[in-house]
Amino acid sequence: MNALTKTPLFDRSAGKRFGKFALYAFLVVFAILQVFPLLWVFDYSIQKTGDLFGPELIKLPLVPVWHNYARAWVDGKILRYFINSSIVVVSSVLISTVVSFCLAYATTRMVWKLRTLAAGFIGLGMVIPIHTTLLPNFIWFNVFGLINTHVGLIIPYIAFTLSFNTLLFAGQLKTLPRSMEESAFLDGARYPKILASVIAPMAAPAIVTVLVMTFLTNWNEFIMANTYLSTDDLRTLPFSIIRFQGQYSSDYAVQFACMTLVALPPLVLYFFFSRWIMSGATAGAVKG
């Protein structure tokens, strides 16, 4: 073999390798486009505000200013809002998961006259926009003293996640054989027990997906929290960012630190549960 055939310039494998390189380069460009804004904000969150106004395109944080985070933590009331978000989100997620599991069970596995009608009704929650309930709920919830309370936020957070969660559970429950319940029933088990110890374990993957998806949806929710909560100390995490706009409108570095802190919890959750999030996200579109 001579040297020439060893390093051909235009043979198929070189062309293939170039194609592969181009393909990866293309994907990397898109990947950068999707995460660059986050990196940019993080970059300037550990510098002085003045650095943002410098002439250079991007200034690297050679001397990190972590102090911005201390100020964001205190003045952004991160801890207070984090606790509030946790209260509202954890309770709404747990209730929504249990209730939608029950709805999915009754509409896929049990036999009753109004079943189709009920399933259609539950589906309404995906069609009716949240925003159309903002104005009337402001009055209607006030009748029960629910405006400006966490309960007043938990209830719509449950209501608006029921439809999607029921659909997701229904997809999984449909696939289970009916003999599951029958044998448990013949063993003398009653409904609560059948659901909790026979059906739920078999639907475990769907349960994890529903928990994580509902958590993200409610954790990131802004407009209902913005509308129903007026007392500063009751507000949820996204408000840290809003707070800074008014009070520290020119202190961008602290604002950026605050944005990074608010972005962190969903990112951490996503890091651990991305598989569940991705399988759940597509359940509606691909199966439905």
């Binding site: 954790w219 990131n220 996204p238 608010v262 972005a263 959750l269 999030i277």
Partner: peptide
């Protein structure tokens, strides 16, 4: 990644 972040962020 952008899909899991809050609209505010």
């Amino acid at each position: 990644v952008p899909a899991v972040l809050s609209v505010v962020v």
